[in-house]
């Protein structure tokens, strides 16, 4: 039973981090209409800044120092990601569609390439993040894990609510208007630059926050964690979620369900040869299922509205 709880809590933390990351992308893509392929770059910035600050921790330092460094690392991570986002605001106004996607992708890949070649950042091998939080080991493992799970779920819920409120606010409506038809929106007096600035700040910030949490919880960061495929997966969640925060959470849940279901042989229902085939071919089957899902509901699992225009 303890092992099962362990398993659940660990997955809860990682899922929450994923939701926070996806919330950032909802702001960038869903609200502001930026076809972003580089959001994993923001997460990487958050993670590496957090890791860097954490490594300032001397061995056996006091808990107060640890707490201070923790706060500092989160601020640094989010701040760095926001700075990266601001960097992209300028170009994003001038580029459209596919070119925007390429530019963001280039941004993220340049970051990763730079990290890969910088020994001080651990290169391809990555950095171990010094534990600022108490380590979940030994007899205290479950309670500590439980606390982490609670905290991260709370943060994820907060992120989702915040993005939802943004979507319903004046700013959110303005963003969507600008996204759908810039000319018309501007003729109504809406200003592109300011809206973009805010959305990039918030979107990149959320991605950076997810990165910080990931660095601290998993204890290791490497360029492999922030690859193009991971970024595309999050975009998939947002698209399947109909570009809304709540929808994205549902999409994450559905994909997680499919992934784990296949891994656990359809929840123990299919045994023997067919079950084994499911496990071995899990990744291929999952990719096929996701393609089918997209073809079936390209505007989002919960959106039947075909009139909705896409960014």
């Amino acid at each position: 039973m303890a092992l099962l709880a362990d398993y659940i809590l660990t997955h809860l933390v990682y899922l929450s981090i994923l939701v926070i990351f996806a919330a950032g992308v909802v702001v960038l893509y869903g609200l502001a209409g930026v076809f972003t392929l580089g959001h994993q770059g923001f997460m990487a910035i958050g993670a590496y800044f957090a890791a860097g600050i954490a490594c300032l921790m001397p061995a056996g330092g006091s808990p107060i120092l640890a707490a201070a460094l923790l706060v500092a690392s989160v601020i640094a991570g989010v701040g760095g990601a926001v700075a990266g986002g601001l960097l992209l605001t300028g170009p994003s106004v001038r580029l459209r569609g596919d070119y925007m996607a390429l530019a963001t992708l280039a941004f993220a890949e340049i970051l990763v390439a730079l990290i890969r070649n910088t020994e001080a950042l651990g290169g391809m091998r990555g950095l171990d993040v010094a534990s600022l939080l108490p380590r979940a080991s030994g007899s205290a493992r479950l309670p500590i894990l439980g606390t982490y799970a609670l905290a991260s779920v709370a943060m994820a819920a907060g992120a989702v609510l915040a993005v939802q409120r943004l979507g319903r606010s004046r700013l959110g409506i303005a963003l969507r208007a600008l996204r759908d038809d810039e000319l018309a929106a501007r003729s109504m007096g809406l200003e592109n630059r300011r809206a973009r600035l805010i959305s990039f700040t918030m979107g990149a910030g959320l991605c950076g926050l997810a990165g910080c949490l990931y660095a601290h919880f998993s204890g290791h960061v490497s360029p492999r964690d922030f690859g193009f495929v991971q970024g595309a997966m999050v975009l998939l969640y947002v698209v399947l979620g109909g570009s809304t925060a709540v929808g994205t959470v549902c999409a994450v849940a559905v994909v997680y369900f499919l992934d784990e279901g296949l891994k656990l042989r359809c929840f123990g229902l299919l045994t023997g040869g067919l079950g084994d085939a499911l496990v071995n071919w899990k990744d291929a089957i999952l990719a096929g299922l996701l393609i089918a899902l997209l073809a079936w509901r390209p505007y989002g699992l919960l959106t039947a509205n075909r009139l909705r225009s896409e960014p």
């Binding site: 893509y29 569609g97 595309a232 998939l236 990744d283 291929a284 997209l294 505007y299």
Partner: peptide, 30 residues
């Protein structure tokens, strides 16, 4: 993969392309 989705949504098409790429790689693995 592409024929139907292409006319519907650019982002969805891109994601299908990524999915197709992963699918082919995974089939190759197996």
């Amino acid at each position: 993969a592409y024929r139907r989705i292409r006319r519907v949504s650019r982002t969805a098409t891109f994601l299908v392309a990524v999915g197709a790429s992963i699918l082919l790689q995974q089939i190759g693995f197996k």
